[in-house]
Design a protein around this nucleic acid. Structure first.
Length: 581
RNA sequence: GCGCUCGUAGCUCAGCUGGAUAGAGCGGCGGUCUUCUAAACCGCAGGUCGCAGGUUCGAGUCCUGCCGGGCGCGCCA
């Protein structure tokens, strides 16, 4: 059985018919090319305007030199439409052509949802293609913060979205355990061990009032977790670890402990990475030096002041200051011989391209906004196809408690960790709150609202609707209404039934669009509309005690379809769909 | 100063990439449980879409200039 029920299918069907009508349109100039006309559809926000509308007639007004409404009339005249799909066509407003879906089409759609089940919502644009999503990518210098949380949940959900559109997705975490940060981390641990071994040793007081051993570096990591690691190093190696100057023991202990914590934190929000890519591997393979060599061959590298410069200015990087506009170049290798992070980053992206991914997504915080273009310039200069690379930039998170923003500073260790957040709110709530806003919108995370396990909390609204349907299906079974019986879905025709059916059918399109623009909040927004439509259906259309058993059965199946849509939508967001609440 | 980004109801935000009378949640006011989960539903109030120009049949959406918030602007990542 085939169903032409998805709105995307409907759009291509209508487009076909409209093009056919265009080709027989009379009075068109000889050079008029119907193939060049963009036939676009929109879903009107007013129900009186039908289910789909097109503005072709308005678009054609100028080239055809005729009034839009006149063109619309001629088009509708020439149009032949299957009454089993479209029950009405109207011309309205300045020249819109509005189409109204037939009930048979909607009933067909519900049958399709039930048939697809937990696969409903999947599309195949990405079928046979691979994608890699890089996210989290925090260096192992401390616990994940709330800021990392938004990155993690956003990246993970974008990965889900791509999977639902057919891609084979790799989730990758990029990190480096070599640079200055790690050295400072090692020194921080060492200083804490010293403090433990020699509690009466010389100390100093930092500007924020904490008392630390004198050897504690000024830019050290101050979180409590450093002390915990120091304790375990001391327990494992004894006091004579301090005899050696080498920081390796401290660094490795810290890295191991911190990575274990990070993975555990991610697992709490159901995130499991496929790959951990260590920056070191692009050094081990000499890929970084290969990048420098190739750029030099292209005359995009020069040496100045002992450093190696990438001529990004030639590639369009500009800056305007009081001296006017001038080109800006970028250091790839510092005069110390140590590369800046950009060089391995270019090599890393070349590596991802070489691994053959069709789509490469990077999830970065707003602080990277000015720097990732350097990486793309490098990749492009090396002949990499940067059209495959999508960079998702998200704005920062503000935690709000009691109506006041919670002050956070990573350097002073008074940040809120993702674990601490999840000690207060559930993983489902955490994920939803991070996802409910557009990535390029500032996220205000209201802890009081998130903790509210009740009516105000938007997550529960969706889960409640789902649980309620499950409950109805159980209860209906007790009176002999079951999903095993074949329903007559054409009986579904009251307003709230029709509204619900139309809403449910949008899922594949919403997921596909959300995946395309990498904005998961569109799914969250949509699910709220589904839950609202279901609640109205619940109010108007009783299943048990319906006017006839056949009607009750048809409604039961519609409820099941709504349950599937909520279940699948929540699955995309990585949020559970409870059967009871 | 420059770049990116945001500015929509009292608050937090959507607005399908240029369409028809700009929406939701929360908060406020009022109503609905002897029938499938009231964690729900219904109604009312609330707007110069930051300001000013421009582009066109049509602008919250696009272009320019201001104003205000955020993030960047390093031989840090």
């Amino acid at each position: 059985m085939t169903h032409n029920c998805e709105p995307s299918r409907m759009k291509s069907y209508l487009e076909q018919q409209i093009r056919a009508a265009l080709s027989v349109l009379e009075g068109a100039p000889d050079d008029f090319d119907t193939a060049a006309v963009a036939v676009e559809f929109q879903t009107p926000n007013n129900l009186d305007h039908g289910d789909l509308a097109t503005n072709v007639a308005m678009q054609l007004a100028r080239p055809l030199r005729r009034a839009p409404r006149q063109i619309a009339e001629a088009l509708v005249e020439a149009l032949t439409l299957d009454p089993k799909r479209i029950e009405g066509v109207e011309i309205a407003g300045p020249g819109f052509i509005n189409f109204r879906f037939s009930n048979a089409y909607l009933a067909d759609g519900v049958a399709h949802i039930l048939e697809e089940g937990e696969a409903f919502g999947r599309t195949n644009e990405g079928a046979g293609k691979t994608a890699i999503v890089e996210y989290v990518s925090a260096n192992p210098t401390g616990p994940l913060t709330v800021g990392h949380g938004r990155n993690a949940v956003l990246g993970d959900t974008i990965a889900n979205l791509l999977e639902w559109t057919g891609y084979d997705v790799t989730r990758e975490y990029y990190f480096n355990d070599a640079g200055r940060q790690m050295r400072v981390l090692g020194e921080s641990v060492r200083a804490r061990v010293e403090g433990l071994v020699n509690p009466d040793g010389p100390t100093k007081t930092l500007e924020d009032g904490t008392v630390v051993p004198e050897s504690f570096p000024d830019d050290a990591y101050r979180g409590e977790y450093i002390e915990t690691i120091a304790e375990s190093v001391l327990a494992g190696h004894g006091a004579n670890v301090l005899a050696q100057e080498d920081l390796t023991v401290f660094k490795e202990a810290a890295e191991t402990a911190i990575f274990a914590d990070i993975k555990a934190t991610l697992a709490r929000i159901d995130i499991r990475m496929d790959e951990f890519f260590n920056e070191r591997s692009v050094y081990d393979s000499d890929a970084v030096w290969d990048v420098v060599k190739k750029l030099r061959e292209k005359d995009l590298i020069y040496d100045k002041d002992g450093a190696v410069w990438f001529a990004t200015g030639k590639l369009g990087k500009k800056k305007t200051d009081e001296h006017g506009e001038h080109e800006v170049d970028t250091v790839l290798v510092k005069s110390t011989g140590e590369p800046t992070y950009r060089l391995p980053d270019i090599a890393y992206h070349m590596d991802k391209l070489a691994r053959g991914f069709d789509k490469i997504v990077d999830v970065f915080g707003a602080d990277h906004i000015a720097t990732y273009p350097d990486v793309l310039r490098g990749v492009e200069a090396l002949g990499g196809d940067i059209s495959k690379i999508d960079v998702v930039i998200y704005q920062f998170v503000t935690l709000v408690r009691g109506g006041q923003p919670v002050k956070m500073s990573t350097r002073k260790a008074n940040f809120v960790t993702l674990d601490e957040l999840m000690d207060e709110v559930t993983p489902d709530v955490t994920r939803f709150f991070f996802l409910m806003r557009s990535p390029n919108s500032h996220l205000e995370f209201d802890l009081d609202l998130a903790k509210e396990a009740g009516e105000k909390n938007p997550v529960f609204y969706l889960q409640y609707a789902h649980a309620r349907i499950c409950s109805i299906i159980r209860k209906a079974g007790e009176v002999g209404l079951t999903l095993e019986t074949e329903p007559d879905l054409s009986l579904l025709d009251n307003e709230s039934e029709v509204v619900l059916m139309k809403e449910l059918l949008r899922l594949p399109e919403v997921i596909a669009q959300s995946a395309d623009v990498k904005e998961p909040h569109k799914v969250a927004t949509y699910l709220r509309e589904v839950a609202t439509a279901f609640s109205q259906f619940y109010r108007d259309s009783h299943i048990i005690g319906a006017d006839s058993e056949a009607l009750g059965l048809a409604r039961l199946h519609l409820a099941k379809a709504a349950q599937l849509v909520l279940h699948n939508g929540l699955a995309v967001l990585g949020i559970s769909a409870p059967e009871r609440m």
